[in-house]
Design a binder for these strands. Structure first.
Lengths: 374, 374
DNA sequence: CTGAAAGCGCTAACAT
DNA sequence: ATGTTAGCGCTTTCAG
C-alpha cells in the first residue's frame, strides 16, 4: 500500500502540514526541511493522493472528454488538439467512449464528474434536457451541438452542406440523395436543413436516406437504395459513410464519380487515401478541441472561495459563449459532372432502369425513415 | 454548487449515514424512509461524490487505459473490448493518449492513479524500471510488452512475423526489408528478432529500415529507401506504415505486389479497404483488451480489509499471469510472387539499376539505424 | 517557518 | 432500522 503524507511526516520528523506545503507551496518551507522531506518522500515512494487533494481544493486538474465513437477517425484530431491545449494549461485529459449510446453517455458523465474539473461533451446523443441536467453537476462545454444557455463549440456544417449542394448543382446534378447519420445528431439535422434549402433553391430534388449508423458499414448498406433511387449524386453525413457507400456502389458496378458523385463531411485523413479521393466538407476539428478547452478553463486563473463546492473557477457561466467555426468544401475526385443521358448500369439487375432512368425515375425511394424533401 | 449528503439528510430529516445507506446499501434502510430520502435527493439534484466515496472505500470502479496513439486505428477495437468487459463488471474506462511520448505516459499514470482502481498500460514506451515503479503506485496490467513480475497480455507477433517471412520466402523472395517501428517498442523488437531468424533460416537477406514513427507518414517516408535497397518484399511494423509505404511506392511508380510485395501487422479495418487489400498479420486486439481487464479485476469480488490502502482486491500480484495471444497471417492482395527477372522500374532514376538488379544489388542499403541481418 | 485543528464528502464499525 | 463516532488523505486557516 502506497505511503501517505503521514508516513513521510513521521520519517522526516515534521508535521504533516509541512509535508503538504513541501508539495503544494514549496516556497513556504525552509529549504533545509524541504530537502529532508523530499528525501523521505522519495525513499518511501510517496506521491500526493490527487483524489484526496481534489476533495479539499475542488480542483483535479483533469478534464473529461466524452465522445460518441473513438473508432471514428474524425475524433482523434480533436482529442489531440484538446490534449495539447489542456497540457499547456497544466491539465490532463481523460477520454471516454460512449459507443453512440445515450445511456452510456450519461453514466460516463457521472463517473467522470468528480474526477475532473469539467467535461467536454462531443457530439452528444442525449437529450438537451439531460445535457442541462448534467451541466448542473459538472461544468460542461458542448461540442458539435447547440444547447441554449450552455457554452458550445460548433462547426458550420450547414454552410458546408450548402456549398456541397451548390457544387453538385454546378455540375448539373438535379437528383441528389442525402445519406443521413444517426438519430439525435445535431450535425445531422443541420446538414439536412441546409442541404434541403439549397436543393430547393436550386430546383433539385433531395432524397433523404436514413437514419444510419455513421460508419462505413452504415454507408455501404445504403448503396442499393442509392442505386434504386436513381440519384446522380449523394451527400453523406460523414466521410466514413461516404467511403463505405463508394465501396458499396463499386460492388454494384457503379463508378464514382462517372455514374454517381459522392460528397462526404469531415475531411478525415482517410479521405485523401481512398480512390477516388473524396470531395468533402472539411471541419475544423482541431480548432474545435482547442477552443472547447479554452472555454472550459477560461476562469482557471481566478481565486477560489473556501468552503467546498466548485466555484467560478472552471466552467463559469457568466460568459456563456457559443462559437461557430467555419467549414470549407474541398473538391477532390469523387464528384464530377452529371452523366449526360442517364447512365448505363454495368451491374444492372432486374430493377435496373433503361437509359432513360433520369427522365423516368419511377417514383421516390422508399426507405426506413426516408423522406423526399422538395 | 452541487448538493452534498448533508443537504439531503437535512431535507429529509434523517442522519447522513441513512442517506449514505440509501445509496450504497438500500436494503438496509426502511422502504418508507428510503423513498423520502430519494425524493429529497432527486429534488436537490444530489449525486454521491464518487471521489469522496473512493477515498474511504478504496474503490473507484474506474479503470485507466493508457495508449500510445489514439489516432492509430489499431487501438479502437482494443479500447472497445476493454470498455465492454469493464462494463460487464460495472466499471468505467478512462482513456488517456500519450502521443508516443514516454514523459506524457508517466505523467498520465500519476494523474490517473488515484482516480482509477488500476491501469492498463498499452504498448508503453517508458522503461521497464519505470513501469515497475508506477506499478507500486497503482495496479497495472501491461499490454503488448513483457515486463518481468507484472501481469502482461501479449500478442505473438514473433510467430506472426515468422509466418509472414515464410509466406514471402514461399513466393520466391530472397531480399526482404523490415520497415521498423518506434524505438522502445517491444513489438518492434519481437518482430525484428523473429523475422531475422526466419529470414536467416530461409537463406534470405533482411534489410532493416528504421526506427520510424508508426504512421502512414512514417511508412511513406521510407519508400525511396525501399526502392534503393533493391528488395522485392517488405514487412512493415504495422498496417499504417504498410499502407503509407504502398502510397509512397506508388508515387515512385512501383506497383504492389507486381514490383514489391508488402506485408503489414495488425489487420486494422482499413487494411481491407485500401487497394490492393493488405496482406497482414492479424493480432487479436479485442481479446487482448478483454483479457487485460479480466486480469486487472480478477480479485474484484473479494472482500477488502479496512484501514485504507488499496488491498488485494484489484491487481493483486499473487497470480501474476503472463498470457500470449495467438496471431494469424491473413493473405490478401499486397503480396505476390517475386518479379521473374528483376524488375523494370517505371519511375526509374539515375540510381535505378538495370534488369539484373536482383543479381547485382550493389550492396546493402544505408539508412539511419539500418542494419543488415544475415 | 512550523504545528495544531478543522474539515472536504463520504462510509463503516459500533451502538442503540 | 437508524444514529454516533471515527476516520480515508489531504489542505488551509490560525496561532505561535
Amino acid at each position: 500500500m502506497p505511503a501517505t503524507i503521514r508516513d513521510v511526516a513521521r520519517a522526516s520528523g515534521v508535521h504533516i502540514s509541512t509535508v503538504s506545503r513541501t508539495f503544494s507551496a514549496p516556497h513556504l518551507v525552509n529549504p533545509e526541511t524541504r530537502v529532508r522531506v523530499l528525501a523521505s518522500a522519495e525513499e518511501l515512494g510517496y506521491r500526493p493522493n490527487r483524489a484526496a487533494r481534489a476533495l479539499i481544493t475542488g480542483r483535479t486538474h483533469n478534464i473529461g472528454l466524452i465522445i460518441a465513437d473513438i473508432a471514428n477517425p474524425f475524433f482523434p484530431p480533436l482529442i489531440k488538439a484538446a490534449e495539447g491545449q489542456a497540457r499547456h494549461r497544466d491539465y490532463h485529459v481523460f477520454v471516454a467512449d460512449t459507443n453512440e449510446d445515450p445511456t452510456a453517455e450519461e453514466e460516463l458523465v457521472h463517473a467522470l464528474a468528480k474526477q475532473v474539473d469539467g467535461v467536454l461533451l462531443c457530439s452528444p446523443r442525449m437529450s438537451n434536457s439531460l445535457i442541462e441536467q448534467v451541466s448542473r453537476e459538472v461544468p460542461v462545454v458542448v461540442i458539435n451541438r447547440q444547447v441554449a444557455g450552455l457554452p458550445c463549440v460548433m462547426m458550420d456544417v450547414g454552410q458546408g452542406a450548402r456549398s456541397a449542394i451548390e457544387h453538385l448543382l454546378g455540375l448539373g446534378h438535379r437528383r441528389i440523395a442525402l445519406l443521413g447519420g444517426p438519430r439525435g445528431s445535431w450535425t445531422n439535422r443541420e446538414i439536412r436543413r441546409a442541404a434541403g434549402a439549397a436543393a430547393r433553391a436550386g430546383g433539385a430534388e433531395l432524397t433523404l436516406l436514413g437514419p444510419n449508423p455513421p460508419t462505413e458499414t452504415g454507408g455501404g448498406a445504403q448503396a442499393e437504395q442509392v442505386r434504386r433511387s436513381g440519384v446522380t449524386a449523394v451527400l453523406a453525413y460523414n466521410d466514413l459513410m461516404a467511403i463505405g457507400l463508394i465501396e458499396g456502389l463499386d460492388q454494384l458496378g457503379l463508378r464514382v464519380p462517372q455514374d454517381v458523385s459522392v460528397v462526404g463531411v469531415d475531411d478525415i485523413a482517410l479521405s485523401r487515401l481512398t480512390r477516388p479521393k473524396l470531395t468533402t466538407v472539411a471541419t475544423p476539428t482541431a480548432a474545435a478541441g482547442r477552443t472547447a478547452v479554452d472555454m472550459l478553463l477560461q476562469h482557471d486563473s481566478e481565486p477560489r472561495p473556501r468552503g467546498g463546492g466548485r466555484s467560478a473557477a472552471v466552467g463559469d457561466r457568466r460568459t456563456t459563449a457559443q462559437v461557430m467555426l467555419q467549414t470549407e468544401l474541398v473538391i477532390r475526385d469523387s464528384t464530377g459532372p452529371v452523366p449526360e443521358t442517364g447512365r448505363t448500369r454495368p451491374g444492372g439487375t432486374p430493377e435496373s432502369p433503361g437509359p432513360h432512368r433520369l427522365a423516368d425515375p419511377g417514383g421516390p425511394a422508399r426507405t426506413t425513415g426516408g423522406v423526399v424533401a422538395s
